[in-house]
Structure formats: C-alpha cells, structure tokens
Design a protein around this nucleic acid. Structure first.
Lengths: 165, 165
DNA sequence: GATGTAATGTTATATAATCACACTTGGAGT
DNA sequence: ACTCCAAGTGTGATTATATAACATTACATC
C-alpha cells in the first residue's frame, strides 16, 4: 500500500489536476447544500485520496495527516473516512480494507470496482442498485438489499499487456 | 460473531443434519479425486463451518479448535481456511472478514452472498462468473477479471418481517 | 535409511479498527 | 453575557484480524 503517482479512473489517462479541484469543489457544494461540515481534517483526507487516485489504507492516510500535524491517532482518520463514505465522497474497498475517493458522485449510487492486483489501481463503474443477478437472487429469496459490494480483482489493461504473472 | 443455532441456506429451512454429512462426504470425495489432503484440522474446520451454517470469524473457529486440542495459534486456522477457500469448500465473506462453508460446491463457480445484518445469516447464490454489469464494465475497460466479490447486505425475510430497525 | 515435500507447531509481529473519556468550539435559547 | 447542548476533535488503551519466520513432524519415494 505504498503511495505512487498514478493514472486515472477507468484505467484511462485524464486531466488529473483539474479532476481533484473539481471533485473538491463538488464536495464542498454538496456539504453546504446538505448542512454537512467539511472540516479541515475531512477535507484533507478527501484531498489525499483524490491525489493518490488509488485505494489507500487508513493508516497510510493517517501517516500523511501526522506529517502535516492534522492528527496522529487512528480515530482521527477513521472518523473522517466514516464521514466521507457515509456521504458518498469516498468508498470503502472491502477486498483491500482500503478507501478510495468517489469518482463522479451522483447521490445514491451503487458503485462497482475493478481492482488490478498488480498495480493496485482501482476503477469505479456505475451500476444500477439492484441490477443484475444479485438483485434477482435477492428478490427470489425475499431479501431486502440495503447495500451491495461488487468488486472484481484481476488485471488492468496495462498490466495485462506487460508481464502479468 | 457469536455462534448460534441456525436455519438454512437461502434463508429456508432444510434438513440440516444430513446437509452437513452430505457436504463433508462431497468434500472428501473431491479431495480424494484431486489428490488433496483433507487433514483432521481442515476437515474439522469445514465441519465447524457447516455446523454453524453462518459466517464465522477466524478467531471464533480457532477458539473451537483450541477447546478440542486441535491447534491454538492463528496460523493453524488461517492455513486451514486458505486450503478450504482455495479449493472451493468454503468462501470468505469480505464484508464481514469471516468465512462460510460452501453450499453446493460446483467446481469453478462464482458465488454471490446475501448477508442479513440483523441475524447475520448468509445465503449463497450461484452466479455466472462474468455475468452482469460487472462483467460488462470490465470488458468495456479492457479489464481481465480473475475473481469477483458480490455481497449484498440487508434484511433476510424473517428479519424484515419481524421488528427490523 | 536418506531425502524431499506437505503439513503443522509456535513465537512474534504486523495491520486494521474501535472504545472510552476528556476537551474544545460554536450556536440556540434565555 | 451566560448556560447549555451537540458536533467535532485529541488521545491512550485495547480489541480484532492476519501474516512472517522458522522449527518440527509425518509421510512418500528412492
């Protein structure tokens, strides 16, 4: 879980600098709208996730915060991450016990993730909440879905092409 | 993660005693076939999972093993779980950091899970490997899927009916 | 019976997450 | 201005989950 420079969402290159600013601005607007407080710690954690543009472990983030004097104990980062994930600004990747900034932020969406096991980059894909066989299976079983986890591990285009494994 | 008596797969009642025996027999046959060793520890861990018939944490299982003198340190249970999951006899539920016996065991299947957040029971549903939007998203992105995680959290029929939350 | 491989035993440690409680701050009501 | 409350933060300790590293055993094969 080392921090490295990165390419983009969907494994495609894009204008990274502006995407950070845009996302932050969107988050700020959304918070103002919903009377949520994007406090310094919360804002900085989101920013760190946006800059990394890949999944980061809570303790990796904490290390950065510590360097910057913004907090030094685990609860600091976990509280910020709780806030960010609860409000859709970031997502938890269960498979990695890690977190990633939300790409796109449409309210109430059900994201799916493609995780490259080599370069560790993560792409986010939008998916209808109860779509697909998971939803059908739930209906069949009389199960009420509240949240879904859809994560695929494998090889991203770049890593699949180069020496894979 | 306390062990409790339970009902069944798919949240439906079924003959539990025989389902344990059947699954164990199937596992034994499969191991014999594939020249895999279903050693005492491995067999017992599978049995524990089958009896619980719900997701169990590794340390819950370890506690049982310890009581029975079958092993007392974490690596014991993790190695057994690695074996069982690698060979399709059990599955890891990422969302819960827990494990569950496989219901059905068809080779090379891609299971999905319905997890009740109240009673903690888990139902397993069979799903085509790259089916659905996750597969389509991967194709679009040029991503090679090796493994998928599909887990839905919510309310099982019984808990949805009674006082939910 | 020497050798190789798979499995197990055991100690220590790494990694992830939460609890519990004190403190600060900024607004609402008076 | 004062009190109160709620949200957020600081901090130390603890719990939960998982792996590393290395010694030992068990068994098959030659």
């Amino acid at each position: 879980m080392t921090a490295q420079p990165s390419l983009g969402a969907g494994f495609a290159r894009h204008d990274h600098g502006s995407c950070i600013e845009d996302s932050l601005a969107t988050a700020e607007a959304a918070c103002a709208q919903a009377r949520l407080q994007l406090t310094p710690v919360r804002r900085r954690v989101l920013e760190i996730l946006l800059e990394a543009h890949r999944a980061m472990g809570a303790y990796d983030i904490l290390e950065r915060l510590r360097d910057e004097g913004l907090g030094s104990q685990p609860p600091v980062v976990y509280r910020a991450l709780d806030f960010l994930t609860a409000n859709g600004f970031a997502h938890r990747i269960e498979r990695l016990n890690a977190f990633i900034a939300c790409a796109g932020h449409k309210a109430g969406h059900a994201p799916a993730f493609l995780i490259c096991r080599v370069c560790n980059r993560v792409a986010e894909a939008e998916i209808a909440p109860d779509a697909g066989e998971l939803g059908r299976a739930a209906t069949r079983a009389g199960f009420v879905i509240e949240r879904t986890v859809r994560e695929a591990t494998g090889l991203c285009p770049a890593c699949a092409e180069g020496g894979e494994a």
